[in-house]
Amino acid sequence: MTDFPTELGVLTCLMILAASLWIPYIIGVNTDPADPDNFTRPGDLTALRPWVHRAYRAHLNLLEQGIPFAILVLLVDRMDGFTALTYWTAIAFFWLRVAHAAGMITGVARMPLRPIVFTAGWICVLIMGYAVFAAA
C-alpha cells in the first residue's frame, strides 16, 4: 500500500464537513416556530432566525472555497507535487473552514473576524494554486 498523503486526508475531512454542513440549517428550518409547515425551502432566508440564516450562508461559503481548494489539491496530487507548503496549507485551510463555520453559525465571528478568516482561506487556495504551477 502506498503512503496516503496528509493533504488527501485533510481533503477527505473537508469534504465530509462540506457534505454535513447542511445539517444545522435543516435543523433550524424544521424547528422554526414561525413556520410549522416548513415546505418552502429555502423560502425567505431573511425571515429565518439569524443563526439558521447564518448556517445556510456558512454552508455556501464552504462550498465557494472548498470546491476550488479540492480541485487544486487533486491537481497537485496528480502532479506528485506535495511539499511541506501544501501539507501546512491543507491543514490551515481545514481548520480555518471549521473556525469560519462554527463562528458564523454561532454568531461569534463578527466583523472583522469572519472576513479575515474567509480571506485567510482564500490565501490558502492561492497557495495551493501556486503549488500546482510549481509542480508543473
Rank of each mutant, 00 (worst) to 15 (best):
M1A: 14
T2P: 15
L8K: 01
L8R: 11
G9S: 15
V10Y: 10
L11E: 08
C13Q: 10
I16G: 09
A18Y: 06
A19N: 07
A19L: 13
S20K: 04
S20M: 14
Y25P: 01
G28V: 00
T31N: 06
D32A: 03
D32T: 07
P33L: 02
A34T: 10
P36L: 10
F39T: 12
G43M: 09
T46Q: 07
L48A: 06
P50F: 05
W51F: 04
W51A: 01
A55R: 03
Y56P: 06
Y56A: 04
R57G: 01
H59F: 00
L63N: 12
L63T: 06
E64Q: 06
E64L: 06
Q65D: 00
Q65L: 12
I67K: 04
P68S: 11
P68N: 08
L72W: 02
L72V: 02
V73D: 08
V73H: 04
V73W: 05
V73Q: 05
L74E: 06
V76T: 10
D77W: 15
D77S: 13
L85P: 01
T86K: 00
Y87F: 14
A90N: 09
A92I: 10
F93D: 10
F94V: 03
W95E: 10
L96H: 09
A99R: 01
A101Y: 01
G103T: 07
M104I: 07
I105Q: 00
I105P: 00
G107F: 05
G107Q: 12
V108G: 01
P112A: 13
R114M: 06
I116A: 12
V117S: 12
A120E: 03
W122D: 08
C124F: 08
V125T: 15
I127Q: 05
M128C: 07
Y130H: 11
A136G: 11
